[in-house]
Design a protein around this nucleic acid. Structure first.
Lengths: 341, 341
DNA sequence: TTGAAAGCGCTACCAA
DNA sequence: TTGGTAGCGCTTTCAA
């Protein structure tokens, strides 16, 4: 493999000139630049990453901490990862995976070995063991998800509170007076209760209070019979035409099925609005009014945040919480337009 | 950050001794080893990856080429990635992502920069543009999927031919004389026609010939009405109780729905066997007899293949095609036990 | 069983 | 606008 020394010799310049042509860190005359670039092309030169990292103390690699148990959200996760990797490349960074089964120690390892210049942490929970660790790491990191204690950290997440609010407003607008919020399934609640689940609920409750709506809370059943019971109970306690908000993807199909089984016609006898917490694109097929997020946007923004930290030497450890706006997809046919008063 | 020089000083040995303690490449007395290890622990020493890569000419990183368009199989993909990363760590390798949108050039880049010691290529198609490129790369690589021309390459894939065969045998065993094979959806066929689609069909056709069954081919519709037409047509041409094989996940739900709509009772009026090309685990909820693959096994084996290449200096570029056996999950209730003769 | 020292290929400082 | 050169932190040969 050719080295920059070979390039320098062929171009008749010094090795440092070759280096400066690559980095652009000092002015080079058009003439020598051309000679160097020709030589590089002729030799098919590629700079050695290890040597570069050693000399410059920057690896041009970002560590991406991926969740170990991808049974929930597994589909959307993939979208995040590939967009993150693609976006990182645009700024000349590569992505190295850090799996969760190494635990927080994995983060210390890749940083300690100076394999990575920074970290992106996916699926951050309210009380996440990785958070105290990254606080003490000498590299910048950006979190996807908002931990309870996030002073001094940079986080980005979907705005679940706003999503909850929009769901309610949508239903209030067509005249509903009572809405039933179907919770996430238990596994999710257990894991993320203190995080986005809470934020979504808060958005729902506040908007309902503001609009004078009553909110019924149904548990997030994962069986059809459980769901039917929950729906029946909600119906009893609802006056006027019932309305449902179902944020958990696993429950959305069940809810529709349960309503069907009970002989309720969507958009006529009942309204349903769902929140797609993960990927909007993925659940396009659901014929419901949905509020979801563009996963690509989160990915792009998270990369931009860390790249800025990595390239801009000023403005260091500043706290920032970015919330990504949900996108509403309205399907009129699933909203009952004439609720009884 | 402490260096191996610092460790050496603290332990009162030379830097080379520290290096040999880490690599184990030469005998060290128990006494000095202890001193060095204590010093390392005391300083929380971590070797600098760049320096190590530069000096040893091995980065201990494996490049993982992930598909750009993960709309199909997106869920299972995630499982592959995390298991690959986890398994690689057991052999002290990290995983660097190479996105497909850099094209084959991305592979040349990471190898040329000596960022990676080897490559794992996911989702290889029959006629894959990356294949000619990796042939000329000076590092080992392992493919997931089998390209048409694979002389001298190391590939691993699910055994789709065997899967097709098992589907047919399962139906033959309960007495069916005609089976209808519902094709993959068009998008998949277009992309993978020459690869696993063909292999699955071959398995079906051969087993059918051997058992004296007739095979009807239905197109892989993606609308319910299209599916109903296809089913109706299949019924006309079937004598005895009809049986279906539906390998494409997207079609499986549709098929069941279409059968329902036509008033056919699964396991009584009709038998259905499906192949889950991607992840067995993911589609456990389907109440059908399925033939699928353990995605984790593919992932583990692919990593083991490349690690062996990377660590065992002998036995180089050898061709190998490993096929992973499908796993049958039988649900008696979905197989009609008394077909007419 | 251990040490000394020469690089690995690049960056960046100091001069010119 | 360019060149010379001293490292970056590790591995590995050569000697002892």
């Amino acid at each position: 493999m050719p080295t920059s020394k070979d390039v320098a010799r062929l171009a008749g310049v010094s090795q440092s000139t070759v280096s400066y042509v690559m980095s652009g860190r000092r002015p080079i005359s058009e003439k020598t630049r051309k000679r160097v670039e020709d030589a590089m092309a002729q030799l098919a030169f590629q700079p050695n990453a290890g040597a570069r990292a050693l000399a410059s103390r920057r690896s041009q690699v970002i560590g991406l901490a991926i969740p170990f148990v991808p049974d929930l959200h597994r589909g959307s996760m993939m979208g995040f990862i590939s967009v993150i990797a693609t976006t990182a490349r645009q700024s000349d960074y590569d992505i190295l995976l850090v799996t969760d089964d190494e635990g927080p120690a994995g983060l210390e390892r890749v940083v300690g070995q100076q394999l990575v210049d920074g970290l992106i942490i996916m699926q951050v929970e309210g009380d996440d063991a990785r958070v105290p660790v990254i606080r003490n790491l000498p590299v910048p990191s950006v979190l996807i998800g908002i931990p309870d204690r996030h002073e001094g950290l940079q986080c980005i997440d979907a705005d679940f509170e706003l999503a909850g609010q929009l769901c309610v407003e949508e239903l209030a607008q067509v005249g509903h007076e009572t809405v039933t919020l179907v919770n996430w399934q238990d596994a999710v609640v257990r894991r993320h209760a203190m995080n986005y689940v809470k934020r979504f609920h808060r958005g729902v409750d506040r908007a309902a209070a503001a609009a004078g709506l009553k909110v019924l809370h149904a548990p997030g059943r994962i069986t059809i019979s459980g769901m039917e019971k929950a729906v029946a109970k909600a119906l009893e306690q609802t006056k006027g035409i019932p309305a449902f908000i179902a944020p958990d993807a696993a429950n959305q199909d069940l809810l529709v099925e349960a309503l069907n089984n009970l002989g309720l016609v969507l958009g006529k006898d009942v309204s349903v609005v769902v929140n797609c917490s993960d990927s909007l694109a993925e659940r396009q097929h659901i014929p419901l009014t949905t509020i979801g997020f563009e996963p690509d946007e989160v990915s792009r923004r998270v990369v931009n945040m860390i790249v800025r930290d990595l390239t801009d030497p000023t403005s260091r450890p500043h706290e920032a919480v970015e919330l990504v706006r949900p996108v509403l997809k309205r399907r009129k046919s699933t909203l009952s337009q004439r609720p009884k008063r």
